Amino acid sequence: RRKSKRKPPPKKKMTGTLETQFTCPFCNHEKSCDVKMDRARNTGVISCTVCLEEFQTPITYLSEPVDVYSDWIDACE
């Protein structure tokens, strides 16, 4: 008699959501930077609500707010 092989359980999909508020690289306030994605103009704007620092970068249809933040961090270095 042959043993029946069980199929492995399906893999769980990533359910965690990406951050939309970030720590400002200038004033170091946590969750003080908000990202606005202007898909019509293909630009992402991130601004700090505390020190009013602002950064704008081009985006694509695949871009997420975390991509705008990482572009800002890269531009600071």
Results as ranks from 00 to 15, higher is better:
D34H: 06
K12Q: 08
K31Y: 04
S70N: 03
T23R: 15
K36M: 06
I59W: 05
S47D: 15
Y69W: 11
T60V: 10
S4Y: 07
I59A: 04
P9F: 14
P10K: 12
R41F: 03
T17A: 08
K13V: 11
P58R: 09
F22V: 02
C51I: 00
S4W: 05
T49A: 10
E19Y: 02
C33Y: 02
Y61L: 11
S47R: 14
L52F: 11
K7R: 07
V66A: 10
E53C: 05
T17M: 13
D71M: 02
P8L: 07
A75N: 09
F22E: 01
A75K: 13
N42C: 14
A40Y: 02
C76F: 13
C27F: 00
C33K: 01
V68L: 07
S32W: 07
T20F: 13
R41K: 14
K12E: 03
P8E: 13
C76W: 13
P58N: 05
G16Y: 06
A75M: 13
L62S: 12
N28F: 14
T15V: 06
L18Y: 07
K3I: 15
V68D: 01
M37E: 02
S32V: 12
P9I: 15
Y69T: 00
T57I: 06
D74Q: 13
K5W: 02
V68K: 02
D74E: 13
K3H: 14
N28E: 13
S63R: 05
R39M: 11
L18R: 13
N28D: 04
T23V: 10
T49F: 06
T17Q: 14
T57R: 11
D67Y: 00
V68C: 08
V66M: 13
T43N: 14
I59P: 02
S32P: 11
K31R: 08
T43L: 10
E64D: 11
I46K: 01
I46M: 06
F26E: 05
C76L: 13
K11E: 12
V35Q: 01
C24D: 00
P10S: 08
E53H: 05
D34F: 04
K7N: 15
M14I: 15
T43G: 05
D71G: 12
T20W: 07
H29G: 13
L18P: 15
D74Y: 10
P10Q: 15
D34I: 12
R39V: 10
P65A: 14
M14H: 13
E64C: 02
F26T: 11
C51Y: 00
V45F: 04
T15M: 09
D74V: 10
P65C: 08
L18E: 11
P25Q: 12
Y61D: 15
V45D: 09
T43I: 14
T17L: 06
R1S: 05
V66L: 10
D38Q: 05
D71W: 04
M37N: 01
C76Y: 10
R41I: 15
K5H: 09
T23M: 14
D71R: 15
R41L: 14
S47Y: 12
P25N: 02
D34L: 09
D34N: 13
R1V: 10
K12V: 07
V66G: 13
P8V: 11
D74G: 12
P58M: 07
F26L: 11
N42W: 08
P8C: 15
K31A: 06
T23Q: 07
E64A: 14
Q21T: 14
K12W: 02
R2T: 14
T49W: 08
C76A: 12
D67I: 01
Y69F: 15
K7P: 14
K13R: 07
T15Y: 06
M37Q: 01
S63L: 03
I73V: 13
V68Y: 00
S63P: 02
F22W: 10
V35D: 00
D38N: 15
N28C: 06
G44W: 03
Y69D: 01
T17V: 10
H29M: 03
G16N: 11
I73E: 05
K11H: 02
K12L: 06
P10T: 13
I73S: 07
V35M: 06
V66W: 05
R39D: 05
T20S: 09
K36R: 08
T49R: 15
M14K: 07
E19M: 09
P25M: 04
P65G: 06
E53M: 05
S4L: 08
M37Y: 02
T20K: 06
T49I: 01
I59R: 01
P10H: 03
N28K: 13
L52S: 13
E19W: 03
D67C: 03
D71L: 11
I46Q: 02
K13S: 09
S4C: 02
